[in-house]
Amino acid sequence: MHRRRVGLAAFDSRDQARRFNELSSALSKTQVDHLQGQLAQFRTALAHFAAEHRDDIRRDPTFRHAFQQMCASIGVDPLAGPRRAGWWAEMLGLGDWQYELGVQIVDVCVSTRDRNGGIIEISELVRMVTKLRGVQAGAVDEDDVMRSIKTLQPLGAGYQVIDIGGRKMVRSVFKELNDDQTSILVVAHDTGGRVVEEDLMKRKGWTRERAHLALENMYASDGLCWIDDQDEESGRSYWISAAIQWNE
């Protein structure tokens, strides 16, 4: 059984605890001050960096990527948007830049939808966005476009980068491609857009029925291709719109 300590010793121990507390808060205050100091320094450095390289970041894709890689390695997302990144995005203006690019991507996807069925090759998208932006806005490349498409995701518009036989395509409609359609897209890229049943039978080992059904579905239900009834070789050929390049 312990007896409670009474008398002077008890005062000593309470006093000691209080002093430990004081010391501890003093220490953490120094640490916080130190941290704040570092942060302030970092901010100044960043502001300096932003002021100096802002234009380069916007104009030069290579520089932009080096910058983005640097950000990723220190765990900062410069595109996190005004709400999450606050002064960071504000200072670089990169968030706005990215959203602006997003709007241009939507513009191109929507305006070309009636000729590609809502599936566009990323290089074609880059080409058209670049044209839309004009010379002064600086170059953009596939990485930029993919990043912007990511920023579009919260809108739920269904913009997605899909891989079709090693080719990146951007899909701007809610339409799942089934395996057969994906195969047809791959073939279409090799043939330059024109696909006939024989192509699929030869390259994919499909039966004529399967090839016919897949192509007809792609045409009539999904609007992903057009038919040509004056084809000299096979009477009817299918033109996969996403595989056609438009020079205007």
């Binding site: 000729r115 330059g192 857009g193 024109r194 057009w226 038919i227 040509d228 009834d229 004056q230 084809d231 050929s237 033109w239 595989a243 056609i244 390049q245 438009w246 020079n247 205007e248």
Partner: peptide, 25 residues
């Protein structure tokens, strides 16, 4: 396939879609 515009003998600029076979179906 590249769909391209074309200038006719009378000097008319045909749109690129005109160079696409399915445009005629």
């Amino acid at each position: 396939m590249h769909a391209s515009t074309f200038t006719t003998t009378s000097g008319f600029l045909l749109p690129s879609v005109h160079s696409l076979p399915p445009f005629f179906t």
